[in-house]
Nucleic acid binder design. Structure first.
Lengths: 231, 231
DNA sequence: GAAACTATCAATCTAAAGATGTAAGACAAA
DNA sequence: TTTGTCTTACATCTTTAGATTGATAGTTTC
């Protein structure tokens, strides 16, 4: 990981020209960071990012022209180790969650003191991830809520435990979108045997068909990582 | 949500008796919180929690007898609005992530200053979630790493965008385990119409059957929250 | 107003899936 | 040794799923 110094290069993206000017002044006067670009357009901003390769981007995520979150994803996809800090007018938990999920390194409210913005840049420039305490709390509430169902599902009685090893193998192949022939081929057994296993799986999981079996498996923690489509 | 005061009732669980005594003294002397119980056993702790209904539990999560995380889950399952703060010797990102995922309201390192422990209790007592800045950073690194694949999948060309509104409805019902008849009944259209839609969905998603369609949908961010089995 | 797209429905056919019963060999536990 | 479970396998039958073609009516778009 690159070492960032206080002279990191910064790109500003904010559709509000006044705000853009304000931030630029703030950073220029109150810090030693180098503003290498400033634009009111997300699309232009992405192009500027490719061109100037800034260390950090301050991005307004409430823009009419283009969704700021989408812009972040595009920047992340460039894989140029550009760290994006979100600027937002809203402390909406869902927004914060989605921003952090797609790789934002910081999230600062526009209403916050300028010193906090500089501090956020300092932290991100030194390789850390920065969220103000208040937003961290909001984030975690949302985070825990979104995982609550999963946690409960994990503690409920899980019919998957009744499956034999072989049945688990078969179910695993089902969760990859295989049909009878595909499973038989991969397990080197006959198609009729697969049918037997699959029928036993249906009985044990109390479902009527393979789609329901797959859904039960995925909703109850069965090999989530392996559940990739094998077309 | 209950309002917590500085006289919140606290239960301590830590397999190290010396540490347990130390924390008890600290809280008694340095704060106005009320320690209603202290034990070196996770199992006893859970029983004490049921009995004394503390507002907050300080729980060591590195115990030999019982996994601290499991103990937290059991306490959360009681659904008694008991807030658990983890005490841990390790700032392992995976541990922090799992603890927060299952509902811990705080995570404090044993090596941290006693003032920070009191502060954490203050925050949690007032209904917030507290993680020290350093651990927050670790948490987010882990968080973003674990979501990276999903984020990439979301930015890839998503065949789901080609679906019409009606086709999305049909796919939604497919991801709930419905067959043709079920979908037809729920959308008040004929079974043959459903077949037409489903076939169009297969074409657009480039899959061969409904199971693969459902898997594609789930793996590409289609209505994850709604993907519950309707048996 | 024509062209393109969408939603609806039907008929027909083939292939696949699912239900049910039976059974043999392997192996482990009682 | 017997009992039970697991894995394998087959036959048979019914139902569902999927492919294909064609058709009508409404909507949107240009």
């Amino acid at each position: 990981m690159r070492e960032f110094k206080r002279n990191s290069r910064i790109l500003l993206i904010d559709d509000n020209a006044d705000h853009l000017r304000g931030i630029k002044e703030l950073i220029t006067l109150e810090s030693s960071y180098n503003v290498v670009g400033a634009t009111t357009s997300a699309n232009i901003g992405i192009n500027l990012a490719k061109k100037y390769r800034p260390d950090i981007i301050l991005m307004d995520i409430n823009m009419p022209e283009k969704d700021g979150l989408q812009a972040i994803q595009e920047i992340e996809k460039l894989d140029m180790d550009i760290r994006v800090i979100c600027l937002s007018g809203y402390d909406d938990a869902d927004l914060i969650f989605r921003a952090m999920k797609i790789g934002a390194k910081g999230y600062v409210l526009k209403t916050m003191a300028s010193a906090q913005l500089i501090y956020a840049i300092d932290e991100v420039a030194s390789g850390k991830i920065y969220l103000p305490t208040a937003l961290t709390s909001r984030f975690f509430e949302y985070f825990q809520r979104s995982f609550k169902d999963e946690a409960n599902a994990a503690t409920e009685e899980n019919l998957l435990t009744y499956l034999t090893a072989r049945e688990e193998e078969v179910l695993d192949l089902l969760t990859q979108g295989n049909n009878y022939k595909g499973i038989a081929g991969k397990l080197f057994i006959s198609e009729t045997t697969v049918k037997t296993h699959v029928n036993n799986i249906f009985q044990k999981l109390q479902v009527n068909d393979r789609t329901q079996a797959v859904l039960y498996a995925l909703n109850n923690g069965f090999a989530k990582r392996r559940a990739k489509l094998a077309v």
